[in-house]
Design a binder for these strands. Sequence first.
DNA 1: TGGGCGATTCGCT
DNA 2: GCGAATCGCCCAC
Length: 188
Amino acid sequence: MPRLRKSFFNRSVHEVAPELIGATLLFNAVGGVIVEVEAYHHTDPAAHSYGGQTPRNAVMFGPPGYAYVYRSYGIHWCLNFVCERAGSASAVLLRALAPTEGLAMMQRRRRTADVRALCSGPGKLTEALGVTQAHNGLALDAAPFELQAREEDVEVVAGPRIGITKAVALPWRYGLKGSRFLSKPFRP
DNA sequence: TGGGCGATTCGCT
DNA sequence: GCGAATCGCCCAC
């Protein structure tokens, strides 16, 4: 199973995001198949990098192939993959996985046995995998990350992003068609 | 199936 | 001070 290298991320977020659907994300050998992501480009008012570089979003302004982690609503962590090139400040938000590896560990961290509830949302996903602020800025092609390219063609659907108040109509949420592990279904 | 709400931290204006 | 790339729980339909 070919591992994703940093060069995989060295392209437009709008190319990378749909190609991540069907890839496998493991963190300390825990994780599963990526079924939902969202693209955030620096020219996009909904992106953290839109207003320029700050200490929080500094990793987004660095080279592609690194993890950007931030706290959401004061409670959750959200995981992003930096894309394009240094300074372009664009990233893909990881929103949902179909759990395959380390089920027991994820069930313990999430305090539920419901497999559909383990990684079906950006905050759930980081809790299940154990990703926190401490992992902000880590390379994606080295431990504890392991990213594997998808092995077969998948059907990718797109729609509006979730939970934002700016640029709400842009269809930059991508998902695996028909997956039971999405944070929300895609409207036809 | 979907909407309303409270929890809770911190970056940024 | 404001409000956010969310979640879980409760309720109505």
